[in-house]
Nucleic acid binder design. Structure first.
Lengths: 200, 200
DNA sequence: CAGCGCTCTTACCATATGGTAGGTTGATTT
DNA sequence: AAATCAACCTACCATATGGTAAGAGCGCTG
């Protein structure tokens, strides 16, 4: 018998999976709660609306990303090393659990399509993007460059890293699971190459 | 008074925009047709179902991408030059008309979430991906590498190129339109750097 | 033991959505 | 002039969805 916070966390996890795979509009509260043997009203008991559920998922994701970034920042010495460590960790984790990466992509793409309500000033991923961009600006190569250059580099790297894990299903279907397995084996090295190439 | 093919093309264009901005599930036939002053039955007259509309949009997109690729292949000499030309053209066009790039991302991500019906063996973007991957394999650097390496590189580059144009709205809202305008000015160069760095 | 709050359920409801059926209009063909 | 066909529209339907209202079971506390 799961406890209250257990149930909430389970809902959060299933919601993340569904939101990552099908997007906001393709995710139904009944499907999420049903996967745990609950009704959608149980879900609405914990998260008062679909928007708030989405916000909670994104907030958790933002915290995880921030944690990953800070962990890499404490480990590495130079900004370059810190960034390389972060992107390596992000890639490694994203290959096995692509939901987070898919959510990042989806959240960035879906903005135009959703009102976002009164969240205007409160974007859960902002607290992750800002130090990431700042860290890029702290590298020797991008030191003199402005915020725009750093944002450009950040979006390039995130795009390069997030797409394949998020598209594993599609690629597996179109090019065969064997090919995808092979890519999974080389993708981390490829990403490290790309990151180093952009930072030095 | 628009002709028949005009109306169909208009519908296709509006549908592309909606599908790119809101995704498959977030796009309603009524909204698409309503933007042209038509009812959704007019849309269903041209495209028998929502799935077929989506397929038509994707097919058109696949043809455009293929055309862009072939144009670059006729212009450049070495595979490297051809790829650089193609990605440059893709970036330039994507910055001003991001709908296509968003659709590429969305189609790759949405696979797990949709049955795809009987399209199993017929993926409109396949005819674009295959020559692109083949062209990567034709470069000196990736000549010895297998299909998987080339697919890995392709998905990295596409991700790097597609994310920012698709996320302009989000970034503009979160970091201000000024920052986004600045990125737009540097993004092409950044992308060229990245492509060259991955190909040579 | 009475009351209370938490967790979750059964009933509902309003709305939106994809899709069908059948008609109307106008141009083209025979 | 009659028939045909494309290009729409009105009417309608079944379903899914987010959300509300109210209550049942149950552990905890006074």
């Amino acid at each position: 018998m799961p406890s209250s916070t257990q149930t909430r966390n389970n809902l959060l996890g299933v919601a993340r999976k569904h939101l990552a795979q099908r997007g906001y509009h393709g995710t139904s509260l009944a499907a999420v709660s049903g996967e745990l043997g609950l009704t959608k009203q149980a879900l609405l008991h914990y998260f008062k609306s679909k928007d708030l559920l989405y916000a909670a998922v994104l907030e958790q994701l933002g915290a995880e990303l921030l944690e990953l970034l800070f962990a890499a920042m404490q480990e590495g010495e130079t900004a370059e090393h810190q960034l390389e460590g972060f992107f390596e960790a992000l890639t490694t984790q994203g290959l096995s659990q692509p939901a987070g990466l898919s959510l990042v992509l989806r959240d960035l793409m879906d903005f135009q399509g959703r009102g976002l309500g009164p969240d205007q000033g409160n974007w859960p991923l902002q607290s992750f993007f800002e130090p990431l961009i700042a860290l890029i600006q702290a590298t020797q190569r991008w030191q003199g460059a402005g915020f725009a250059e750093a944002l450009s580099v950040a979006s390039q790297m995130l795009g390069a890293i997030c797409l394949f894990p998020s598209a594993q299903g599609a690629f597996s279907n179109r090019f065969g699971p064997g090919a995808v397995d092979q890519v999974r084996r080389t993708f981390l090295l490829q990403t490290q190459d790309l990151v180093i190439g952009r930072l030095r």
